[in-house]
Design a protein around this nucleic acid. Sequence first.
DNA 1: GCTTCTAGATGACTCATGCATATAGATGCT
DNA 2: AGCATCTATATGCATGAGTCATCTAGAAGC
Lengths: 112, 112
Amino acid sequence: MRGFTHCWLLLQLARGPAHGYELLERMAEDAPGTDPGHLYRTLRGFEDEGLVRSSWDTGGSGPARRVYAITDQGWDYLRSWSVHIRRTRDQLNRFLDDYAALTQREGGENDV
Amino acid sequence: MRGFTHCWLLLQLARGPAHGYELLERMAEDAPGTDPGHLYRTLRGFEDEGLVRSSWDTGGSGPARRVYAITDQGWDYLRSWSVHIRRTRDQLNRFLDDYAALTQREGGENDV
DNA sequence: GCTTCTAGATGACTCATGCATATAGATGCT
DNA sequence: AGCATCTATATGCATGAGTCATCTAGAAGC
């Protein structure tokens, strides 16, 4: 499966078109410490795979912005991801349960 | 963060000592398709970092087995992982919630 | 002797991620 | 005009997880 950044970005674009810098700032709130280079590369990668389409927005202030919009193929991809993500979440839950059970048995001095 | 294999392996060793091949078989049930090379390398990596200790078990049938046991440092690591994993799980839940909300709004022909 | 099973390991590759840095338009300051 | 700063996109290079193929070698069965 692709990393968290991939999922997050495509999901954001599913909510509506946006340009990279905007997504970068949004991400700074949700998951701080995201690398701009990785973000822009991921977006271009999406376009290469046909999951999004981009166009230049020269209106507004500042440099031109490359605005990305999700495609039907992008929606399909997002859908298959959601299945995978649910599975991953379940695995993590199992990990947490197992860990909690172990630490309880071992002593109980842990804040689980 | 380290990948799922890392977490899973160290958690298994937290339940008790085991050798690589045994873990490989256990993993085939929980998360099929795991690569032996990756597994063995990960275990050696753990040992380099002091998270586990290994010793040869020449008893029993078949070739000698390298048996791994978790160290105190390994327990510490596992503990810090559990915090991170909980955070990741919460992110995945947020993703799934957002996706569900989006697809409901868009039409509702999806089995969420 | 031969194959098969058990067990551990390496080499080479792809891809996600991180860190530094480059480029360039727009804006504000002096 | 000159200069710094903000906005915006992008590349270069390194690390490290994960994958695929392959190797070594003891033990067991036939």
